[in-house]
């Protein structure tokens, strides 16, 4: 079990500010103290993870929440590059998307995603999903040491 005082860093890769805000609202109610970092496209997400440019001092997140449809570099490309990078491949990636297309799901697991979750359309269900992610990935799961 993680110490309650620990702050867990989460990277949310999401271009829709509405979703960012909703996620932030949902995580406010989380039991685990967390810090939500946001990248609004794939290129920025990878820069953040690799601590390039303005993200020189960025922390390495414990969990990445990744949308599939992103500007510049989409979620699949980010996922593929992360899983090919020995530095980044251990970070759990949760795909959080509205896409229910079968080929998107298959492709994501082919690229070694850690789990694939559909963004529910209903607010209460969305809050529930974020809570489940927190319960599972931030509480239950033993993450690799930093």
């Amino acid at each position: 079990m993680r110490m309650m005082s620990d702050v867990v860093d989460i990277l949310l890769v999401e271009d829709n500010p509405g979703d960012v805000r909703l996620t932030r609202e949902a995580l406010k109610e989380a039991k685990v103290r967390n810090e939500l970092h946001v990248a609004t496209d794939g290129v920025e997400a990878l820069a953040f993870l690799r601590r390039e440019g303005v993200h020189k001092k960025a922390v390495r997140p414990s969990l990445v929440l990744l949308d599939l449809n992103l500007p510049r570099k989409n979620g699949r490309e980010v996922l593929a590059e992360m899983k090919e990078d020995p530095e980044l491949r251990r970070i759990p990636v949760v795909i959080l998307t509205t896409s229910q297309a079968e080929q998107d799901i298959i492709k994501a697991y082919d690229l070694h995603v850690n789990c694939y979750i559909n963004k529910p359309v209903d607010l209460d269900q969305f809050l529930q999903v974020v809570k489940s992610i927190e319960d599972f990935w931030l509480t239950l799961v033993k993450l690799p040491p930093q």
Binding site: N16, G18, D19, L22, E25, T98, K119, V121, D122, L123, D124, F126
Partner: peptide
């Protein structure tokens, strides 16, 4: 269409 609608629905619900 679902994307913006989800926003409307989510925030009216909120």
């Amino acid at each position: 269409l679902q994307e913006p609608l989800r926003m409307v629905a989510s925030y009216t619900s909120l």
